[in-house]
Design a protein around this nucleic acid. Structure first.
Length: 262
DNA sequence: AACCATGGCAACCGCGAGAGC
DNA sequence: CGCTCTCGCGGTTGCCATGGT
């Protein structure tokens, strides 16, 4: 699957494209470990990689960087993506800032493969107001919340932190342990909006998102309560959503959840 | 077993912003 | 001011695995 870009400077300067090999990954990791990130075009040449600087940067940021989390998104992360996308639209990098360890590319792929798919099947625009109401008010968000609650009972957040401490990504990749890197990962994670979820003293994101008293008979209304814990996260604070139409009776919701159980 | 359709995701591309000269 | 380079972003492509027929 490997190809080369056209070059007028001869074969020696042809650039590789396509899937990265383990050898290339190793070259990139070790070069950055010694010299740091940045100046990607120069980095590519000095590291002996026949890749564009752009390609090196992308590979590092989306896959090789130690604090990149791999694996399925948690319900909490899915919930936050839905919230933030309804607020900011396709501002993937901005959304990714609120999901430590997740890349804009991963979030973008998640949206396009999972969320867009539902919109296609429902024959409505994924960016349209009706679809956003379906996602946020009728089914998707409310169904994520019980999952988040059940995960909280077993302290999912703590489990993730334990997992991160036990098997640092950097160790998996390079075979060496950088304890400071691991600690910084955990510290960064704890300052994210998700850090509140398993904090019983400070309530949980799920409980903030979902108040039974505020849900009407169609389940189309929920309130995001205000709390000082969300001062740095204005969208979640006191934001109320009430659809201006009955999104359950119009059949959107049934179609949505017959396709995939979250 | 072979073929085909589909989904998931890594990687690429084009563009624009910003910095440096 | 204009040029070049670097970087980052969002959109798109294409490979590969999986499931269905």
């Amino acid at each position: 699957m490997l190809s080369y870009t056209n070059s007028s400077k001869g074969d020696a300067e042809q650039l590789r494209r396509g899937t990265w090999s383990a050898e290339e990954d190793s070259l990139l990791i070790h070069y950055i470990a010694r010299h740091g990130e940045g100046h990607w075009n120069l980095l590519a040449k000095r590291a002996g990689l026949r890749r564009t600087g752009k390609s090196c940067r992308l590979r590092w940021l989306n896959y090789l960087k130690p604090d990149v989390k791999h694996g399925n998104l948690t319900p909490q992360e899915e919930c936050l993506i839905l919230q933030l996308h309804s607020k900011w639209g396709n501002r993937w990098s901005k959304i990714a800032k609120y999901l430590p360890g997740r890349t804009d590319n991963e979030i973008k792929n998640y949206w396009r493969t999972r969320v867009h798919k539902h919109a296609r099947h429902l024959k409505i625009d994924a960016n349209s107001t009706p679809f956003q109401h379906v996602i946020r008010c009728c089914n998707w968000m409310p169904r994520l919340l019980p999952k988040m609650e059940s995960l909280n009972q077993t302290s999912q957040h703590d489990q993730e932190l334990m997992t991160m401490e036990q098997v640092p990504v950097q160790e998996q990749i390079s075979g060496s342990t950088d304890i400071m890197s691991t600690i910084s990962q955990v510290a960064e994670y704890q300052t994210s909006p998700f850090s509140i979820i398993s904090n019983n003293d400070d309530y949980t994101l799920a409980k903030y998102c979902y108040h039974d008293d505020n849900i009407d008979k169609n389940g189309c209304y929920y309130n995001l309560a205000s709390t000082s814990a969300f001062e740095d996260f204005p969208y979640l604070v006191g934001d109320c959503h009430k659809p201006d139409y009955n999104c359950v009776n119009d059949g959107f919701a049934d179609g949505l959840w017959s396709m995939r159980e979250l």
